[in-house]
Amino acid sequence: MEHMGIEKGRLHYSWISSAESTKFVEVVKEVTDAAKAAGPNTNFVKRYMKEAE
């Protein structure tokens, strides 16, 4: 995905067992922080929606 121009930090992969609640919380925090830092993704907005703005 990065190769195609999606910024680093927008896409996250992780494998969490249902028993790993602490890891789940950690990962969710990380992902939301990263998403906030990256800001709104304006690249994936359709043309008509951009025009409406």
Partner: peptide, 9 residues
């Protein structure tokens, strides 16, 4: 960089 890649495609 990411922006240039996006622009390239």
């Amino acid at each position: 960089d990411a922006g240039a890649k996006w622009g390239y495609f």
